[in-house]
Design a protein around this nucleic acid. Structure first.
Length: 112
DNA sequence: CAGCTGACAAAGA
DNA sequence: ATCTTTGCCAGCT
């Protein structure tokens, strides 16, 4: 239906864009939501180009452990943590505190 | 043209 | 319990 070209990429961008403030999700959750449970890597790679795709809150996307693995890819390594703290998310040692409490599952809040 | 890398995750040994 | 290996998709060398 959607005549989009890179399904995965575009889908990832859409999902990440739907992440509400103060919420975070994991690469695997998005990948699983898109159908590629093991495609978490691709999701992360999509985030790499997120700054090119447009306004993608990639800072709300962390790995399964809640660790800010991609902080290094932001303008500044502490940019990601700062953005999360601004939304009310506590970050300790580059890890989201109460990650599960702020976890936002696309397959639960979103629908195919 | 072909192979490697990469912001992850889960299973096997 | 820890370490290693494979899978995923797209972009780069």
């Amino acid at each position: 239906m959607n005549s989009n070209q890179q399904n995965f990429f575009n889908d990832v961008y859409e999902v990440v864009r739907q992440i509400p403030e103060g919420r975070v999700t994991s690469y695997g959750a998005i990948a699983s939501f898109l159908g590629a449970k093991s495609g978490a890597r691709t999701v992360g790679f999509a985030m790499n180009a997120s700054h090119v795709a447009g306004d993608i809150p990639a800072h709300r996307v962390v790995n399964r452990k809640g660790m800010l693995t991609g902080k290094n890819h932001f303008g500044h390594p502490l940019e990601m943590q700062k953005l999360l703290e601004q939304e009310g998310i506590r970050v300790k040692n580059d890890c989201v505190v109460d990650f599960e409490d702020h976890f936002w599952d696309p397959s639960v809040h979103l629908t195919l």
